[in-house]
Design a protein around this nucleic acid. Structure first.
Lengths: 166, 166
DNA sequence: TATAAATGTTTGGTTAACATAACATTTATG
DNA sequence: CATAAATGTTATGTTAACCAAACATTTATA
């Protein structure tokens, strides 16, 4: 294949953002990319040239910007990672939306494929296993409180759970 | 405080590696740091100067290298993060040791304080909550298999768990 | 349709993190 | 203890990712 070499985090971010903009506006513009990334437009132009060379975007000077098929594939992959990781952080680890989003932005680049896959499985397991329902999640939240009790309510919690299974 | 500005990932790695070497040899040497990081010794020297300026290491040209107190604090923090994240990846997400170690190397820099704290709590919860013992972990492992059953064995699993609690 | 405003590009920095290779110092050994 | 080998440093160069500001093009409007 031509496109085997791993992109930098920065370039992955560009693709992800271009995807978002395409969704909203059909098309991405330099100004919007710069704004979303909090950088200057000059920096964007250089990055776009780079991405165009790699055939990840369609780009001519002064033109609108769209993803190529391979660019789209990467962008969707990154977006999927983002969504899953954010879901894990917020729903499982109880991180608030904003921070979960920020952290997902970084983790989506650093998590290897296997670990990411296991997070997917783990979320699925937690969502589906009868031993880990909402009350289990609630038990976790309680256990985080400074005055967390030492598993006093466990029997009640468990029998509730058994009950549900019948 | 003097040392408030966030270190780069690279510099954090240097401190962590110097700590490891100190543990083994009482002292760190340029050559060993270079080897551990897989870079050239010239690059190490520049980084060491930088760390010395920041008062994070004791360093004079041609001398051995030790951490200062503040350097040690950061190194220990990074090491602690590494250990916890690796533990989470390997024991909870079932990632093999090697990959867990590699990924922890990167995640230790990208995880914010709050998310890291929640991972700590989450591991503790999983280890201590009676609803999430070894058999629960095993159920997760099973659920990852391609032919995973649809929660057939759940009743058995749960009653086993209830039994244990008595 | 001129021209101002908005948008995009280019040029010439800067910084961090590396490499390479020549040079300096330290350490080990004949 | 002299010298070779090992180790560490310096000087110079590269690359990626940015900025600032001058310049070019497009678009909107008077």
């Amino acid at each position: 294949m031509a496109q085997d070499k791993q992109l930098s985090e920065s370039l992955e971010d560009y693709l992800e953002i271009i995807l978002e903009l395409e969704k909203g506006n059909k098309v991405a513009r330099v100004k919007d990319i710069a704004e979303k990334m909090g950088i200057q437009s000059g920096s964007v132009t250089s990055a776009l040239k780079n991405l165009a060379e790699k055939k990840l975007i369609n780009y001519e000077p002064y033109s609108y910007i769209t993803l190529t098929e391979s660019g789209m594939a990467i962008a969707k992959e990154m977006n999927m990672r983002h969504v899953v990781i954010k879901d894990f952080l917020s729903r499982v680890l109880q991180i608030d939306e904003k921070k979960a989003d920020e952290t997902a932005c970084r983790m989506e680049h650093t998590l290897d494929k296997k670990s990411f896959g296991m997070i997917v499985q783990f979320i699925k397991f937690i969502d589906e296993c009868p031993r880990t329902g909402d009350d289990w999640m609630q038990a976790f939240i309680n256990s985080c409180k400074p005055d967390a009790d030492d598993w006093e309510k466990c029997k009640a919690c468990l029998s509730q759970c058994s009950e549900r299974l019948k």
